[in-house]
């Protein structure tokens, strides 16, 4: 459990970090082998990847279990709590920067590379020599690029499912906040209702997102391969969807922990960390709704 040293707390040795390093390595090693497997060749990549991935899940389970136990044993004082908070905040900031790379690619494609390929600005010669019949446009009429990579496609209408998903995520941010206030006020029943509602909203977002993807692939011929439009569309919404999935799982675990009474009025970092994460996912979605779907 580590030791309390005066004002400071230093945790005891743990095998979880080295386990984590090993399973992360196994996962990416398997993934790399799988990606390089020749068509039709069985290869061991997929198996190794699966083993690694299951290992990661077990590792998270084990590591968090030991942390939760230490937390319940009261090992974590105010200073440790602050360290955790800083860790989570800066982790979210790093996530913001990860999305920034993909938003940057989206803006660059829309503002520069596609117009240049259409003969705008300083891309005149590329246009003249290679694709003189390409009229630059974003979306269905040109987002596949001058080579029409991936074939003709239609875009997802912003005011259908995406709008519904926006409303779902926005209300989930409200419900998680209500749950947080309930936690501070000590109303366990209210916490469980509103946190449960948040989990359901997250799950329904994912359901509609999956529905939208299926429609895009089957009916609109909008795929990951649909030129730079498809690339940015699916990479941005896909990474966001992965974060919603993770966030929903984390919310569900926090719901369980609330039900077990793990949190007190002034000692509930786990709850707040997940709530912050959820708000972050929400804000990213607003950016997506704006720049991927509407504009």
């Amino acid at each position: 459990m580590g030791q309390q040293q005066g004002a400071y707390f230093v945790p005891s040795k743990s095998h979880w970090p080295i386990v984590a390093a090993v399973v992360m390595f196994v996962t990416v090693f398997g993934a790399a082998h799988w990606l390089n497997a020749q068509p039709g060749e069985a290869g061991f990549g997929k198996t190794v990847l699966t083993v690694g991935f299951v290992g990661i899940l077990l590792m998270f389970f084990g590591w968090f279990r030991s942390v939760i136990r230490e937390s319940l044993a009261g090992s974590y004082n105010h200073q440790v709590d602050t360290s955790f908070r800083m860790g989570m905040m800066w982790f979210i900031f790093s996530e913001v920067m990860f999305f920034a790379a993909f938003f940057g690619a989206l803006f660059y494609a829309r503002m520069f590379s596609v117009p240049w390929l259409g003969g705008d600005g300083h891309g005149v010669l590329t246009h003249q020599f290679l694709w003189s019949d390409y009229a630059a446009a974003w979306g269905a009429n040109g987002g596949g690029g001058p080579g029409k990579v991936g074939g003709d496609f239609q875009t997802v209408a912003a005011w259908g499912l995406p709008l519904l998903n926006t409303l779902i995520l926005l209300s989930s941010s409200i419900t998680v906040t209500i749950a947080h206030h309930a936690l501070k006020a000590g109303h366990r029943g209210k916490i469980l209702v509103f946190l449960g509602l948040t989990v359901l909203l997250g799950a329904s977002f994912l359901y509609f997102q999956a529905h939208e993807y299926i429609e895009a692939y089957k009916e609109l011929n909008l795929t990951l391969q649909s030129g730079v439009y498809g690339s940015t569309f699916f990479m941005l919404t896909g990474f966001h969807g992965m974060h919603v999935t993770l966030g929903t799982i984390m919310l569900a675990i926090i719901w369980l922990r609330c039900a077990k009474g793990h949190f007190t009025k002034d000692h509930h970092f786990g709850f707040e960390a997940v709530a912050w994460y959820w708000h972050f996912v929400d804000v990213v979605w607003l950016g997506l709704f704006m720049f991927v779907y509407i504009l």
């Binding site: 494609a109 596949g144 001058p146 080579g147 991936g150 030129g227 730079v228 439009y229």
Partner: peptide
Amino acid sequence: GAVTMLLTDKYFGTSFFNAAGGGD
């Protein structure tokens, strides 16, 4: 993010860095 785009361009057919697909 940058190397992830390399990965998907190489193995999943995205066009971030492929001019024919509107990338650069």
